[in-house]
């Protein structure tokens, strides 16, 4: 601060005549020296470790071959727009799927946490559904639905691989997301329900006004995690022949026997997933800070 001539103000705005003591000035200087040392050590160790790693890779016997077949820059530039067009399919699929998943998963979570007698059969079905779809690999679900449903030859039912692939992804992810939502609902303390019920709110009003707003706020970080995983897993529908980023890369790579398109596709996925995971981390840290603050109050 360069306002040395104006009086210092404390947090509530009172003027204060505080001047740091000699000991404090000394301490600040000491802390600066310590901080500088830490930076020097961190820089040195990073240079050593990363440098050794790079040298080990570059001097390895197969490096030239790998560089040509995986990191061919001019070939990568040439296929970039094809793979990027494929990625649009992944993004569209992610957007549409996440909306449907949100609705379906919330229904499952509400059914599983409800105590209503009339809903008992639905509760059992929801539990069975979640158990099954959480337990079967996504790839198998995609194969079963993608090849199984058209084989039924039901008239009027779509045989579009894009739609069937999306359905498979939605079915599996709804089970995951339902569990996340359910854990959020169960994490709201029973005393909150008691307070709401004692005010005369019905079960469903308690859920709507008191439980769900708190539950959803708490599960936003894990839900963002699932969103990242969903975007990556949409690549699996390529197995049905959907031309997404993975499939587009595969077509080119199998034509030229050069795997640079795979690297291009990976980099494109990273362009979206890294910002998203950074954002997820930030929201997670914020929500932890908020919960700790509440615990301390």
């Amino acid at each position: 601060m360069s306002t040395n001539d104006s009086p210092i103000h404390d947090s509530v705005g009172r003027a204060s005549s505080w001047v740091p003591s000699d000991r404090e000035v000394e301490r600040i200087a000491q802390r600066k020296v310590i901080a500088r040392k830490r930076i020097a050590v961190a820089t040195l160790s990073s240079v050593l470790v990363l440098g050794a790693l790079i040298i080990a890779i570059v001097t390895s016997p197969g490096f030239r071959v790998v560089q040509e077949t995986f990191f061919d820059v001019s070939y990568g530039r040439a296929v970039l727009h094809i793979v990027a067009r494929g990625l649009v399919t992944n993004i569209m699929l992610t957007i549409i799927a996440s909306i449907v998943i949100g609705i379906f998963a919330m229904t499952l979570a509400l059914l599983r946490t409800s105590r209503s007698a009339a809903l008992t059969p639905f509760r059992i079905l929801a539990t069975a559904y979640v158990d099954i779809f959480r337990g079967v690999p996504l790839l198998l679900v995609i194969l079963l639905i993608g090849f199984g449903v058209p084989a039924l030859r039901i008239h009027g039912l779509t045989s579009s691989v894009l739609v069937l692939g999306t359905v498979a992804v939605v079915m599996t992810y709804s089970a995951y997301v339902a569990e996340v939502l359910r854990s959020g609902i169960l994490s709201v303390h029973p005393s909150q329900r008691a307070a709401a019920r004692s005010l005369g709110l019905s079960q469903s009003q308690t859920l709507r006004f008191v439980v769900l707003p708190q539950a959803i706020k708490r599960v936003i970080p894990p839900l963002l995690n699932d969103l990242v995983a969903l975007l990556k897993d949409t690549g699996l529908v390529s197995i049905l022949g959907v031309i997404d980023a993975v499939r587009a890369a595969q077509i080119d790579a199998s034509r030229t026997f050069n795997y640079t398109p795979y690297v291009v596709a990976s980099l494109l996925f990273l362009c979206i997933t890294i910002p998203l995971t950074r954002y997820t981390d930030r929201t997670l840290l914020r929500s932890i800070a908020r919960q700790n603050a509440q615990g301390a109050a």
């Binding site: 005393s191 307070a195 709401a196 019920r197 004692s198 008191v210 707003p213 708190q214 509440q294």
Partner: peptide, 20 residues
């Protein structure tokens, strides 16, 4: 019970305000 609770008020040891 919802109808009955409309005629009762309850205050808890731990306040139980809705934090959101």
């Amino acid at each position: 019970v919802d109808v009955i609770r409309r005629r009762l008020g309850m205050v808890f040891q731990s306040f139980n305000l809705f934090p959101h």
